[in-house]
Write a protein that binds this DNA or RNA. Structure first.
Length: 773
DNA sequence: GTGGAACACCTTTTT
DNA sequence: GGTGTTCCAC
């Protein structure tokens, strides 16, 4: 870290990387395959520009898609350059644009202290507008409306243009009203951050000129994920010098549904005909076999840049496909795989499970928990989306900008203070009539005869609360102290404490974490204003908060992009799940494109693996409560059969044949021929000789209806005390109910115990859900 | 105005 | 199966 490197060591670069680094002026497009040392190349390129070419760091803008990538880039440059690059512009599209919008707020026509509405805020506002306009919920669900509006902004279509097009008039009305209310609330949504800047650039030559003068070099990472406005933005600001370097991989474009268009990178040379094109095709991450399987798959896609990923790495072991009876079987498979990897000396954090949808994680979590294997689920519900966290942030936002109606409405009766639906409806009506924010109407509401005396009093109380906090905000100027005042004055914490439930405890814990993150922010940011805190928080995702720990990682393929693990299992390779049903059915023209994106997604998943790649599919699976019969994914058929080692679950064929694997016996499952030599060999890894694996409880009905979670996963032969090692008096913790003490062991299958949880409730729980506390 | 029960929903989600 | 939303009884 402290090693100051005076001269850049170019010998670490391969030929194309070096060419990318040393390319000086003019447009450059780099196709960087998975694991091809892309980050190395771009950080070196920036370092080279600064050190060898004498470009001041502040004249370079590097744009990424995630905060994490931005942070990583900055850190690597700090190590590469003797004095680091503190004044280099590095940030996400959104953060960079937010910064520029504030700096040039007047020219852009936005309020300087604008708040940023996240997806949930946006949804809330749109839902209210749709209701106000009497839009039929069936025809115009808020989700669809939001999608249309966002799509327009991503395409760079103004509201006026949108309205002028002959589309559905209701959508146009909602859009217009939405824009008005955003303006009134002094709020911008995510897509506005980029769109508003682009729109201002279009109409304001001075601003255009100013921004074009800001930087001499612009770099954009993950360019395949840019949408139309983002491309327009970078094109605009580079117009003078044309020193635009874009990096990406069309094969890893997996955000089409968010408006991303990989043709931005594919057709880059059409927009910049003199652009130099460099391909990074050597993979330094994976074994030959993994690369071969990944290549076979993605090679099926039609619309892509011609390239072939290759590697000098070792051959490695075969990519293995597990054919499982059901989701639980699959989960057990994964547990065994983890145990095997650990036995071979891997760390837990070196194993990852990737799946298409979050819903798949549960079964795996249960299995891992039962096997006492620490794991972490990446993604899921965002921390900042939790109700209690959002409530508190809403208070802060109202203090910063009381016109923020969405936030104000969120907290006006949270915690409940007797301001009910009727009162709020009247307030909204008055606000709409006056064309003002709710806050402005609130001041007059005290004397508005429309409200009853009781309501007036309650509103006055709320007004007083906010006014008091506003004074505090002005006096304190620091967010941490302010959030504590909010907690105090609203009695938020006391009320939760009084609830005395595990859920409330979890909320309190989240609040503590939030307060902690405010403190952290104050320590690390200068100046730590409320405004910048709120902006940081809104533009942050959970992955930015993830800390390293030695645990097995579970995440969606989307979340895994950019990561790598020595051992990876990709689960649920079934038709309808992966490729997902929404992208695999129907007869429309777009289906090809949708399938190609699913295939890219699989490609991204496969290329996360460094040494071992396992795939799996289940024949049956519970989804949303009902049992589905599943067909193996078409992607499996697209992998040459000699590249896959197939392991069938013992559960699969046992009911119908006497062997462990019913070779070709069942046509619904014999989608791939298993060679006779391979079949037996493969069994060595199967259930039959699983010495290293936890013993499977012999089931009376293999593949049939399992009786519960506990019995399948708990190895009872090792728990001599019975009931999974639980004893009365033992202190235990439960993922949902928190910590408690075992009161009584209950007989039964699965084993259950009676636990008194701290805070009161006595519950019967399945033993395997408990961990010693 | 509040809270619980019934109901509808459900892909992925860089910001 | 889990969650967010709506509606109805108190």
């Amino acid at each position: 870290m402290s090693k100051v490197r005076v001269v850049l060591d170019y010998s670490v670069l391969n030929k194309p990387q070096r060419a990318a680094v040393e390319h000086h002026d003019g447009p450059l497009v780099i196709f960087a395959g998975a694991g091809s040392g892309k980050t190395l190349a771009i950080t070196y390129r920036i370092a080279h520009l600064v050190q060898a070419c004498g470009v001041p760091a502040r004249r370079i803008l590097a744009v990424t898609f995630t905060n994490k990538a931005a942070k990583e880039m900055r850190e690597r440059l700090d190590r590469l350059l003797p004095y680091g690059a503190p004044d280099l512009w590095v940030g996400t599209f959104h953060a960079t644009c937010a910064k520029l919008l504030r700096r040039f707020s007047e020219a852009c026509g936005v309020r300087k202290g604008f708040v940023i509405y996240d997806e949930l805020d946006q949804r809330a506002l749109i839902a209210r507008i749709a209701r106000d306009l009497d839009a039929d919920e069936k025809v115009y669900p808020p989700k669809r409306l939001a999608w249309m509006i966002n799509r327009a902004k991503q395409e760079g279509i103004s509201c006026e243009e949108f309205v002028a097009k002959k589309g559905e008039p209701m959508i146009a009305r909602v859009y217009t009203e939405y824009e008005q209310r955003l303006a009134q609330a002094g709020a911008l949504d995510f897509d506005d951050l980029i769109y508003r800047l682009v729109a201002a650039l279009r109409t304001n030559p001075t601003l255009r000129h100013d921004l074009q003068q800001c930087w001499d070099h612009v770099l954009v990472d993950e360019f395949q994920d840019t949408n139309a406005v983002q491309f327009q933005l970078v094109r605009d600001i580079c117009q003078g010098h044309r020193n635009l370097c874009v990096v990406g991989d069309d094969d890893q474009s997996i955000y089409r549904w968010r408006g991303a268009d990989y043709r931005n990178i594919l057709d880059f040379q059409r927009h910049f005909s003199d652009a130099k094109l460099i391909k990074l095709e050597q993979n330094y991450r994976s074994t030959k076999r993994i690369i071969s399987v990944a290549n076979a798959l993605v090679g099926r896609n039609i619309e892509r840049q011609k390239k072939r990923l290759w590697t000098d790495n070792e051959e490695g072991q075969s990519v293995t496909l597990y054919c499982c009876a059901d989701g639980r079987d699959e989960a057990l498979r994964f547990v065994n795989l983890v145990l095997e990897a650990l036995a071979q000396g891997s760390k837990r954090s070196e194993v990852a499970l990737l799946y298409r949808t979050h819903a798949q994680s549960r079964v795996f979590e249960e299995a891992l928990r039962a096997a006492n294997l620490p794991y972490r689920v990446v993604g899921g519900i965002r921390f900042y989306d939790r109700a209690e966290v959002k409530d508190l942030l809403a208070y802060l936002r109202v203090l910063q900008n009381p016109d923020d109606d969405v936030s104000l409405l969120r907290i006006i009766n949270t915690p409940t203070r007797g301001i009910g639906k009727t009162t709020i409806d009247r307030l909204l009506e008055a606000a709409a009539r006056a064309g003002q924010s709710v806050w402005n109407t609130l001041g007059q509401a005290e004397s508005d005869p429309a409200h009853g005396a009781a309501a007036q009093k309650k509103l006055a109380g709320f007004l007083e609360l906010i006014a008091g906090l506003q004074q505090k905000a002005a006096a304190l100027a620091k967010p941490a102290a302010l959030i504590e005042s909010v907690l105090e004055q609203t009695e938020y914490v006391e009320l939760l404490r009084a609830e005395n439930t595990a859920e409330a405890d979890a909320k309190l814990e989240n609040i503590r974490e939030l307060v902690g993150s405010v403190r952290e922010f104050e320590r690390t940011t200068e100046p730590p204003t409320l405004e910048s805190f709120l902006e940081t928080v809104t533009l942050q995702t959970d992955q930015d908060r993830m800390q390293e720990q030695d645990a097995v990682a579970l995440m969606t393929v989307h979340a895994a992009k950019g990561l790598e693990f020595p051992t990876v299992m990709v689960a649920g390779l079934e038709e309808g799940l992966f490729p997902h049903i929404r992208n695999s059915g129907g007869l429309e023209e777009r289906d090809d494109k949708a399938i190609e994106e699913e295939r890219r997604l699989a490609y991204v998943a496969f290329t996360r693996a460094k040494r071992q790649l396992f795939l799996s599919h289940a024949r049956q699976r519970y989804l949303y409560g009902d049992e589905l019969s599943c067909v193996p994914s078409r992607f499996l058929d697209e992998i040459p059969s000699d590249e896959l080692k197939i392991v069938k679950s013992a559960y699969l064929s046992a009911p119908r044949s006497n062997g462990y694997h019913g070779e070709g016996g069942e046509e619904d499952f014999a989608y791939r021929r298993v060679s006779s030599t391979g079949g037996r060999d493969r069994l060595a890894h199967g259930y039959g000789s699983g010495r290293a694996q936890p013993r499977q409880r012999p089931s009376a009905s293999p593949g049939g209806t399992p009786t519960g979670i506990g019995d399948s996963y708990v190895d009872r032969s090792e728990s001599s005390e019975g009931s999974g090692g639980m004893r009365p008096g033992a202190h235990v913790s439960h993922p949902k109910f928190g910590v408690g003490q075992v009161k009584e062991i209950l007989a039964g299958d699965p084993p259950r115990v009676l636990v008194k949880f701290s805070g009161g409730p006595v519950k019967t729980v399945i033993t395997s859900f408990l961990k010693p506390a």
